[in-house]
Amino acid sequence: MMQTWLEEAGDQFRQTNELVGQLDSKGFKPIFTAPTHDAEVRRDHTLAIIERLAAWSPQAIQFPLKIFSTGPVFEHGGWAESLDVEVLEDGPGDADRIVFDLLSHLIAERFVAPAQKDLVFVAGHLGLLRRLLILQHWTLEDVLALERDMSQGKYSRVEQSIRESSPELLPLFRPSSPAAAVRHIESLQDVVSRDWDVSHWMRSLPKAIDHVPRVLWDLSLTGSFTYYAGPVFALYRRGQGAALIKGGRFSVHHQGRDWQGAGFTIALSEWFGL
């Protein structure tokens, strides 16, 4: 029994090393962050990475900065091993494309057919969400309250608020195909003009995420952290009760400096199917 346990741990160690090797081959560099700091536990790698980077002057950092960090994070009352990948940039740049290219590569390496058929990639967009609601005359305070409810999983309350104020937006708050979501938004002519930039991004999602047969759109997906600012996404596998990957575009103000980019966290137990 113990031998099996040790062998399983060895397998996970080797698989994690292979993952790190893939990141290394794509030019990502490791940043070491502490699991606890000032009596606070690490709940997320992104902020821990930015805290380390803040020791460097802006002139010392070459963007785009492709980095990763590994180790446990404390979430939902327990520790979970994770690997966090970030692409930081100093202005609008290629971070989204770099992240999606890497995601496609990692998914293709990890899930060969037929395992790929169970994968589901879900995307949301906080920028689009805010834009749609503001165009519907929501106050910023109400928009933020709605986002808070969504990040706390209060879907029925979100649905009630949307139904009361903007019922035509309601179908966008449950999983649907990106093409259907784009058609629905374009049908709301009084809500949004046709030249909106997110449309192209939504339409290109299925191609951007190669090897995932089902790509869905869901505006109720907002991510758990307040620093998400634009696209957010999660990778699920039918039958597994937690996301394999969660990520998105972020914007953080820390110690007087602005940090932005895109990234994702791999939940290693889920990724390896343990």
Binding site: V120, V122, S156, P175, D218, Y236, R237, A242, A243
Partner: peptide, 16 residues
């Protein structure tokens, strides 16, 4: 209250 697993909610149409 009816609660759902977030992963199953999005990956299994039957749950919705």
């Amino acid at each position: 209250c009816l609660i759902a697993n977030p992963a199953h909610w999005r990956a299994k149409p039957e749950v919705v």
